[in-house]
């Protein structure tokens, strides 16, 4: 199987380990990633400060490039890129007039047919393969953290349920992990505030998430968003200072966690790039179900 691939700017630098682990896991899953030729930045949150049109056009150019390359589905692992590209895809789908207008700006035709998928939506299709490619020894309690952009706005995300989503929990469970039930799955980590000098608020918001995960006895937080990962991982010193506690719970990309469960070399998964050291305790012993239990 093959799918279009839009790494986005983060995955080429500060979230490089996400890119590395995505590629490693997809290789195991026999999913060929076809990078969109000459893709450009999605514009993030800055483009439409300048103009709505600029924001739409930056996103649309990527969709048009994908279409030209014959890709009808593209994977955008970065939750922010996914959200921006998906919003353009939704806006342009079934709207030939808008497609026409944006095609002129971009200088490339676009017919509106490219679908944008996030990392979880793609992995969800491979649950059986994930179960088969792991030896189920990754029995760690993990806190699956979705953040905002994977589920909201619902019209754009069109994915999972908006409150208490389940997809990542099911993906991790397929790999043998024990996802904890917790209430911070879709709480905001505060990325939106990084551009304003209120870093203490970010520490506060991210801190609540880290503390909740630790309280539910998770040994790792699993995420599919570079912004969330950065806030929970890189800002850990500020978080710990704010909480006046020493939290050492690592923050893994979902593909890093899956890679570990699949037995992929940690170096290939970029684990050495995580700020909070990834040291998982011995997984809990497997509970062997007796024959009696099975029968009743």
């Amino acid at each position: 199987m093959r799918i279009g691939y839009y790494p986005g700017c983060s995955l080429t630098s500060s979230a490089r380990e996400y890119d590395e682990s995505v590629r490693a896991v997809c290789e195991v899953l026999d999913l060929t990633l076809v990078e969109i030729p000459d893709w450009n930045c999605c514009g993030a949150s800055s483009a439409h400060v300048a103009s709505e049109e600029l924001a739409l056009s930056l996103r649309a150019r990527n969709l048009a490039l994908a279409e030209a390359a014959g890709l009808d589905e593209i994977l955008a692992p970065c939750a922010a890129c996914f959200s921006r590209l998906a919003s353009a895809s939704v806006e342009l789908a079934d709207n030939p007039q808008k497609c026409q207008a944006v095609s002129e700006v971009v200088g490339m035709p676009y017919s509106g047919g490219v679908k944008v998928l996030n990392m979880l939506a793609v992995l969800e299709r491979f649950k059986d393969e994930i179960a088969a490619k792991t030896d189920q020894s990754f029995r760690h309690k993990v806190a699956c953290y979705y953040g905002c952009l994977l589920v909201r706005p619902t019209k754009v995300a069109q994915f999972d349920r908006v409150e208490d989503p389940q997809s990542m929990d099911q993906i991790m469970a397929a790999a043998g992990a024990k996802p904890v039930r917790w209430s911070s799955k879709t709480e905001c980590c505060g990325t939106g505030l990084s551009t304003i000098t209120r870093t203490e608020l970010v520490a506060n918001l991210s801190g609540r998430i880290v503390a909740d995960a630790a309280k539910r006895e998770a040994v790792a937080i699993v995420t599919a968003c570079p912004m969330c990962q950065t806030n929970l991982d890189m800002r850990r010193p500020e978080i710990n200072q704010k909480l006046q506690e020493e939290h050492r719970i690592p923050v893994l990309y979902v593909t890093q966690a899956l890679g570990l469960a699949m037995g992929i070399d940690p170096q290939r998964l970029g684990l050495h790039r995580n700020m909070v050291p990834v040291e998982l305790p011995e997984p809990e012993p497997e509970v062997v179900t007796t024959d009696d239990d099975d029968e009743d």
Partner: peptide, 12 residues
């Protein structure tokens, strides 16, 4: 207006 995180919780 500058503190809004665009997390969309309110909207959803």
């Amino acid at each position: 207006i500058w503190l809004c995180l665009s997390c969309d919780t309110c909207h959803s």
